[in-house]
Amino acid sequence: MGSVLQLTDVSVVRDGNRILDRVSWEVQPTDRWVILGPNGAGKTTLLQVVSASIHATEGESILLGETVGKVDVFDLRPRIGFASSALARRIPADESVLDVVLTAAYSVTGRWNENYEDVDIRRARRVLAEWKLDHLAERRFGNLSDGEQKRVQIARSVMTDPELLLLDEPAASLDLGAREELVQLLGNYARSSEAPAMVMVTHHVEEIPPGFTHALLIADARVRAAGPIEDVITEPHLSEAFGLPLMVERSDDGRFAARAA
């Protein structure tokens, strides 16, 4: 199988400002990528390009074998799992957790008159169990904790067996316990041979789950380093990207930590 994503000299320009500047990047089906960089670096914009939510101003984007701009994006998007805070804000607060996950089958965020088969319901319940959410199936989404809502979003994003999974800051705003639980679950999923290619945006190396294989470091709209994670998450690369001398450590279980030197 070929790459699931290939960007060639992709730029995004808004009001004369380059939000992304000539980004080239390739993701293989078994890759698990983390995107790191300071605020305003272009991380979320890059994820929007990759999800076919926006079109690049310049360059070529090939997504799941299709050239964006020459294919109906509504045919592409169901093949991509996407979890983000922006998506969570569109989910009705009174929607049950089961329905939040189930409605991914129709790419909608509120159950209405769709008809779901028993196989869809069984699949949704299995996914909830895999993400330790089965006991919350009948709870209302708006009544969940931040950590539970984050896991429901991820469960929804994998409901349709996507070929590419995109996670935009899945651990943001979580307390220590909720973060560690989520990182552990994501690490287990990343190690699974059945998981799709994964791309996760984060601000903190401590949130990188074990099992992630590659990293892309972006600053000032440009890629500063990309490749195997051990080659990118280094003191020189991070110090340059964040503009501060940093010390980086990696534990035996693959977790990273960084602090000012």
Rank of each mutant, 00 (worst) to 15 (best):
M1V: 10
G2K: 11
G2W: 10
S3V: 10
L5H: 00
Q6E: 14
Q6A: 13
T8Y: 04
D9V: 09
D9P: 04
D9L: 07
D9Q: 14
V13R: 14
R18H: 14
V23Q: 01
V27C: 02
V27L: 05
V34K: 06
N39V: 02
G42V: 03
T44D: 05
T44V: 03
V49G: 04
I54L: 09
I54Q: 00
T57F: 05
S61A: 14
S61T: 15
E66P: 02
K70A: 13
K70V: 07
V73S: 10
D75M: 07
L76V: 07
R77T: 08
R79C: 03
L87S: 08
L87D: 11
L87E: 13
I91M: 05
P92A: 07
P92K: 04
A93I: 05
E95H: 13
S96N: 12
D99F: 11
V101K: 01
T103I: 04
Y106A: 09
S107Y: 10
T109F: 14
Y116S: 08
Y116P: 04
D118P: 09
V119W: 15
R125E: 10
R126L: 12
R139Q: 12
F141Y: 04
N143K: 14
S145I: 01
E148K: 05
Q149F: 11
A155S: 09
V158W: 02
P170H: 04
A171K: 11
A171R: 09
S173G: 06
D175T: 02
L176C: 07
V183P: 03
L185G: 01
N188W: 13
A190Y: 08
S193G: 15
E194K: 15
E194D: 14
M200C: 00
H203E: 07
P209K: 08
A215S: 03
L216R: 11
I218H: 09
A221W: 06
A225N: 03
A225G: 09
I229Y: 06
E230V: 11
D231S: 09
V232C: 01
E235R: 02
P236N: 02
H237A: 14
A241L: 08
G243V: 02
L246W: 01
M247S: 15
R250P: 10
A260N: 05
A261E: 12
